[in-house]
Amino acid sequence: MKYAFFLGCAAPVLTGNYELSTRAVAKRLGIGLVDVDEFACCGFPIESIDHKTTILMAARNLSIAKDLGLDILTICPGCASTLLEANRELKESRELREEVNKKLGKIGRSYEGGVKVKHFIKVLNEDIGTDKVKSSVKRNLEVLRIAPHYGCHYLKPSHLFNQYEDPEFPHSLDELISAAGARPVDYQDKMDCCGGIAFGIDDNISYTMTGKKLENIKKAGADAICLVCPLCNVMYDRNQRAIERKLDTSYGLPVLFYPQLLGLAMGFDEEELGLNLNRVKVSELLSKI
């Protein structure tokens, strides 16, 4: 099992802990990740400005994977859904395919389709399977109550994911948290968005949205929130202190990427999983296990 590793923009600069823990966990499970220097931005941040540029940027990335003969594994749901949307639109419209290839030709590339794209967590869920994840566990995490945050683009728009799971009532991350030996916790408005996309445009909106989620997760008595998206992490971990100040409250809720949680269960140490890089300290959480 080998994939072209698509890091996107946020992960390599802002969330080294996500990248480190993904690499560690993937290696342990026998998932080969091939680094590809040519991969640039997926195109998602341009979507609200010019959709055709987004498709072209996505197609450029897909063409690179095609040349390598590899499918793509991403750790960013925004990247995954953007690349999948480009695949879908290019498949459905010959006119668009020709238009895109005319432009790609000018930078010496072409793409006719055929590259599969999957988020890492879906690879774990669908291809590795929860049984194999379970059998990789070496450390007991059953004291940990973990609140899953699916975010948005991991599930939606659902037409991209072949009815993978109901976007209103998903289960894959809950199951993977259980497979790692921890206890998933339900909470009010579990499926709400973190508001990260509005960060910079209207911080009041994004801070309030993340704050509401943190509030609900605290109320449910969780020890940590578990994520699969680098932008969600910027909101929950990097901005948690700023949100506490703005809303005049205190959460102190540790934020774990799923591979960090699974890595703990596999017996990796703190540094191997980048837990020392988490903004909200995880020492209390670690002392429980």
Partner: peptide, 19 residues
Amino acid sequence: IWLCTACYTCQERCPQDVR
């Protein structure tokens, strides 16, 4: 128009598939 966070909740629920 710039305030949408692209969470797709509306798109998933729209009975008319307005996307």
